[in-house]
């Protein structure tokens, strides 16, 4: 098949070297006009559609579900089971998206295989194929969970710098949105506090815990999602935590040319 190689859609130099106020404006624009391309694969796709419908309506948040195809999209939502047969198509469509591009992995199947973790034909997580920005848990996640994932992505976009995201590793630390600095969502604050059935010990916190991850001191520090070499200056204690899963593919932007691309025919 004669494939015309158009090359990777890249970020221009101007948006890389732009001064900070300009970057702020650019990020602000990107944040609230996410043209989304739904990679609807399974059950989660139905919840994605439900999110785009009148009850939840993510256009309120600036997510526009009318991208005619991946070439016009900023955000890909992988919703559903990625099978090994489908994996090349996922990779290929991701590569067609222009930069800056973002991926939300929606649901257990695309996070890491989910219910089909021991299946012979299911890819164990879409992050093996493409870099993922936000993981939304659930099987399927409820529409509000996707909205929450979109909000988290918008926070990430607001704090990022494309130069560091796509360029060579720079000594300037990437401004990573931190879980601690994130304001708790009003949804959590307004929900009445429920007492646990057995409040046994007195040393429990009295205030309602927010949905955001606390960072208890005894917890091992979390690995930042970005390549550690570019952000290690910010968190001196960042060390990969021994976890049940290998760390997700943290390759950003175009794949290393020396690496054989197994997914293109």
């Amino acid at each position: 098949m004669g494939v015309i190689n158009l090359g990777e859609p890249r970020v221009g130099t101007i948006s890389r070297v732009a001064p900070k106020p300009i970057k702020f404006v650019l990020n602000w624009g990107r944040r609230y006009s996410l043209w989304v391309f739904n990679f609807g694969l399974a059950c989660c796709a139905i919840e994605f559609i439900a999110t785009s419908m009148s009850r939840h309506d993510f256009i309120r948040l600036g997510v526009i579900p009318f991208a005619p195809g991946p070439r016009q999209a900023d955000l890909m939502v992988v919703s559903g089971t990625v099978t090994d047969k489908m994996a090349p198509a996922v990779k290929r469509l991701y590569e067609q998206m222009p930069e800056p591009k973002y991926v939300i992995s929606f649901g257990a199947c695309s996070n890491c295989g989910g219910p089909y973790w021991d299946s012979y034909c299911v890819t164990k997580g879409v992050d093996q194929l493409v870099p993922v920005d936000v993981y939304v848990p659930g099987c399927p996640p409820r529409p509000e969970a996707l909205l929450h994932g979109i909000l988290r992505l918008q926070e990430k976009i607001a704090g990022e710098s494309l130069g560091e995201r796509y360029g060579p590793a720079s000594p300037v630390p990437v401004a990573q949105p931190q879980a601690e600095s994130r304001p708790p969502s009003p949804a959590v604050l307004r929900r009445p506090l429920q007492r646990p059935p057995q409040p046994t010990s007195a040393d429990r916190p009295e205030d309602p815990p927010e949905a955001s991850p606390e960072n208890p001191p005894e917890n091992p520090p979390r690995e930042p999602p970005q390549p550690p070499e570019s952000s290690s200056g910010q968190r001196p204690d960042a060390a990969p935590r021994p976890g049940p899963l290998p760390p997700p593919n943290s390759v950003r932007g175009p794949a290393d040319p020396s690496e054989p691309n197994l997914f293109l025919p």
């Binding site: 993981y135 929450h148 994932g149 309602p208 606390e214 930042p224 899963l245």
Partner: peptide
């Protein structure tokens, strides 16, 4: 509760402290 989407998949593994904190929302 459903608001625990994460940037890193490792953070989706909730250890006992975090699981205990969800207890307040039951």
């Amino acid at each position: 509760e459903f608001e625990y989407a994460e940037y890193d998949i490792l953070d989706l593994t909730h250890e006992r402290d975090r699981l205990r904190e969800w207890m307040w929302t039951v």
